[in-house]
Design a binder for these strands. Structure first.
Length: 837
DNA sequence: TGTTGTTTCGTTTTT
DNA sequence: CGAAACAACA
């Protein structure tokens, strides 16, 4: 992907009419872009059209099922493809593009195809390449919302008040910038954290709101009512910096289209076909962007195809609007809706479990996945109980080792085929610990990413400043890295001077060293920095960029800084810097590389090792594994308490969709776990099995016999579910769990389940307000006595419902340390214990 | 300026 | 409880 902006011609890539159905001279991409693929040197469209010219049905259509084929061939008019998990969504999308090209309906550059992640875009390019034989250099408008936004803005920057070489800021830059603004405003940056405000701005931008549009309440909620002013000041600052944040990459194009109907009209003509992947994840801004492009005047066809699955919408918390997909038919009257329900991934049991679970959600478009694959050894979904998370990890580790050695049929399983999907990342640690002691290979997906590392960001700041001397944020980042004696006071002086004159800081520095403003030492140091940058920017045009990059890092003393670093990280960081330089080789210029990095903040994982994957449920979306482990299915963790508190009913439904996503990742085997005790924020808490367990269909689920220490103690009449019994499904509909579910239903109609006014769900153990009954789903479970004197004293003999009998060792408010006869010393809430004897 | 103590906070994450 | 971010200090 070479996205350097200076080589993008404006509307001159192809004639602005559709290609003729029987072209005499097929368009051929420039020689430099032709692939080395065996199929030879013809362009994609040419190859695709060649395929069409043969009189049988084209190869790419064979092997599609009827629904898929319909989704591929219905190219004219608006289409919504509801593609369930594992139904061949990507295949439809890519084949559809191949079909459009093959039938000569459009040139590659006349197709707008939008994805959410770079990974998805990459995969689509590859797969289209396979279909039409060769790399897809000819599809310039296949990419993420953001990368396409950048492309639009580079072309039309001046129409939204930017220069076309604008910088894209990452979250780190944004936070530092906001912090400066908050301080400049004379506000306390402890009371008003920049991070939080950055989050608010992000939220507003997701909704397409500019400073004048934000609700009064929001504006007042931050910085003593200065929220709106601060937001406006931030935007103004971005403008003077000639910079965009991620949100702007969506908002500016919207602004551009609204204010320049002629430009919009050009794009209407240009994009003959529009495709959108993961439509359920679009936020309001993306939706507005898309509508501007897709809703055409009557005389231009609306060939828009959105693909998504409302049941897999799990990003509501970051602004995604499921409504967008639910509303498609209204937005595009006459839209054809095609359902893909034939699943090629999972066993009947897994689909049955997932389908039954998700059926508990309301407001779905409604799909039922089915499979024709049925094998005698298909395993049901298995639910396991464990005493605590340590045992959970131990048991999962054992199961993995068993599979590795060979399952009941003697088949040996690869670790690569197994994944542990957790709700929250803190759960990962226990598994990592366990796997380390077992010597089991694992890989964590989704941790801190390559380009987010300190040394990479520093290096990038150097490169940015060389390419873009006005990049003040980059300047401030590295001016004193490595240490040059240019501390706060110097930087502050530079900053003030630059702001007063409205010039970049690097220029300000050049001015200021001519004066006696600074102490000689600082002046000398600054002089050296300026000289260096001057030198580097002169080399920019004629030196190979990897060479220049190395030179910059060496001459600035940055590599030496890490060589002299005595901490354990030093060598690793140097290695990362080398890796950074290596990855630059694939690009034509430093500029091109910077553009890539600002948008594509991911790096590939090493796939060659056989290892169990550990990741969150969110990052598992789109993946599949032979065997999936789903630990932590407990109330409060999954569904997460906070989702319930803040999202109410819809929050619960999103959690349920997350469970659905988890289940549908599994191809053959799915093991769910819950524990009865979990340490949360250092405190032991008794936990209840997740309500989602009660929502699984008995017919497709087995409950594992208590395999170890679980189950010794009774559950004391509350917190029960059918999973407490050896045979929980014996009479499913009279168990406490089911009754509780019934109770919920009546609750739900009564208080609308979690409106802000308060509902029956509260967190245990955070009682700051007075003593009151803490309940989950209306059942009494504990009393918090945070600010009443504890009724326990050191030495008391007490009984805990999970840990049994013990002696109180110490008392701190409502927290007790108890030495249990069996479980040893634990910290517990006093609501869970009672005095005995 | 590097070290040490103190405070705060605790879900999910892409661009 | 434990990590991370920050403030105070030598």
């Amino acid at each position: 992907m070479t996205n350097s902006f200076d080589d993008i011609p404006f509307f001159d890539e192809e004639p602005d009419h559709a290609p003729r159905r029987t072209p005499t001279t097929p368009p051929v991409p420039p020689a430099s872009q032709q692939s080395q693929h065996a199929t030879g040197g013809l362009g994609i469209a040419a190859r695709a059209m060649a395929a069409r010219d043969q009189h049988r049905a084209p190869d790419y259509l064979s092997g599609l099922n009827p629904e898929q084929r319909e989704a591929v061939e219905t190219v004219d008019g608006p289409v919504l493809v509801l593609a369930g998990a594992g139904t061949g969504k990507t295949r439809v999308l890519t084949t559809r593009i191949a079909h459009i090209l093959a039938t000569g309906r459009a040139f590659p550059s006349q197709i707008l195809a939008v994805t959410f992640t770079n990974k998805a875009a990459r995969e689509m390019k590859e797969r289209i390449g396979v279909l039409v034989g060769g790399a897809v250099e000819g599809m310039p408008w296949l990419g993420t919302f953001h990368s396409i936004g950048v492309k639009l803005l580079r072309r039309h920057a001046e129409l939204v008040g930017l220069r076309s070489d604008f910088t894209i800021l990452d979250t780190d830059d944004v936070i530092r910038l906001i912090k400066q603004l908050i301080q400049a405003e004379g506000l306390d940056d402890k009371r008003w954290p920049a991070r939080q405000f950055a989050g608010m701005i992000d939220g507003w931008k997701n909704k397409g709101l500019t400073p004048k549009d934000i609700p009064e309440g929001d504006a007042r909620a931050f910085a003593n009512g200065k929220g709106r002013e601060l937001y406006a000041a931030y935007q103004a600052r971005l403008k003077t910096l000639n910079a965009c944040d991620f949100g702007d990459l969506l908002l500016h194009p919207i602004d551009l289209f609204r204010r320049n109907p002629d430009v919009l009209r050009d794009y209407h003509q240009k994009f003959r076909y529009i495709l959108v992947d993961e439509y359920q994840d679009t936020n309001t801004a993306q939706y507005m962007w898309l509508r501007l492009l897709a809703q055409r005047p009557k005389d231009v066809p609306q060939n828009v195809c959105c693909v998504g699955d409302d049941d897999q919408s799990i990003y509501g918390w970051r602004g995604a609007e499921v409504d967008n997909i639910l509303r498609f038919e209204k937005d595009f009257p006459g839209a054809k809706v095609i359902r893909l329900e034939r699943n090629y991934r999972s066993t009947e049991h897994i689909l049955g479990a997932a389908g039954h679970l998700i059926a508990h959600n309301e407001g779905r478009l409604g799909k039922t996945l089915f499979t024709e694959r049925r094998e005698p050894d298909d395993e049901k979904v298995v639910v396991h109980a464990a005493w605590d998370s340590e045992e959970e990890a131990r048991a999962v580790g054992e199961t993995i080792e068993q599979l590795q050695r060979g399952d009941s049929t003697g088949k040996k399983h690869n670790l690569n085929d197994m994944a542990i999907l957790v709700r929250a990342s803190f759960q990962m640690r226990e598994f990592e610990d366990r796997f380390v002691t077992l010597g089991l290979n694992y890989r964590v997906i989704g941790g801190p990413r390559f380009y987010e590392r300190l040394e990479i960001r520093d290096a990038m700041a150097y490169f940015r400043l060389v390419c873009q001397p006005a990049d003040d944020l980059a300047f401030e980042r590295i001016v004193n890295t490595p240490k040059r004696g240019l501390g706060d006071t110097t930087v502050r002086a530079l900053h003030d001077y630059a702001r007063a004159r409205d010039i970049p800081m690097l220029a300000a520095a050049a001015d200021i060293i001519e004066t006696d403003e600074l102490k000689p030492k600082a002046r000398k140091a600054l002089f050296d920095v300026i000289q260096s940058f001057k030198r580097w920017s002169e080399l920019l045009e004629n030196t190979p960029h990897t060479e220049l990059a190395e030179q910059i890092l060496d001459e600035s003393g940055y590599t030496d800084m890490w060589k002299n670093d005595k901490s354990a990280e030093g060598p690793g960081r140097l290695e990362n810097l080398k890796e950074l330089i290596r990855s630059m080789e694939a690009f034509e210029s430093l500029r091109g590389f910077l553009e890539h990095v600002s948008l594509v903040m991911d790096a590939e994982q090493n796939e060659d090792m056989d290892a169990v994957s550990i990741m969150t449920l969110h990052s598992a979306k789109g993946l599949e594994f032979e065997t999936v482990f789903l630990p932590g299915w407990e109330e409060g963790l999954f569904p997460h308490q906070r989702a319930l508190d803040e999202g109410g009913r819809s929050g619960l439904e999103e959690e349920r969709r997350l469970a659905y996503v988890g289940l549908t990742r599994a191809k053959r085997r799915c093991h769910i776990w819950f524990v009865s005790n979990r340490r949360i924020h250092g405190l032991w808490q008794s936990t209840m099995p997740s309500r989602f367990l009660d929502e699984l269909p008995p017919a497709h689920v087995d409950v594992a016999e208590s395999e170890s220490s679980y189950g010794g103690y009774g559950r004391g009449g509350y917190g029960q579910s059918r999973f407490d019994k050896a045979d929980p499904f014996a009479n499913s509909y009279s168990t406490p769990g089911w009754k509780r579910a019934q109770a919920n239903k009546t609750d739900a109609t009564r208080d609308n389940w979690g409106s802000r006014s308060g509902h029956a769900v509260e967190r245990i153990g955070y009682g700051e307000s007075g003593p009151r009954a803490k309940t989950i789903d209306g059942e009494l479970i504990a009393k918090s006595v945070a600010d009443t004197p504890s009724k326990f004293a050191v030495g008391d003999r007490v009984f805990h419902i999970k840990f049994g009998n013990g002696n109180v060792v110490s008392v701190e408010g409502n927290k007790l340390t108890i030495n249990f006869d069996r479980a040893g010393e634990k910290r517990v809430l006093d609501g869970f214990v009672e005095r005995v004897g």
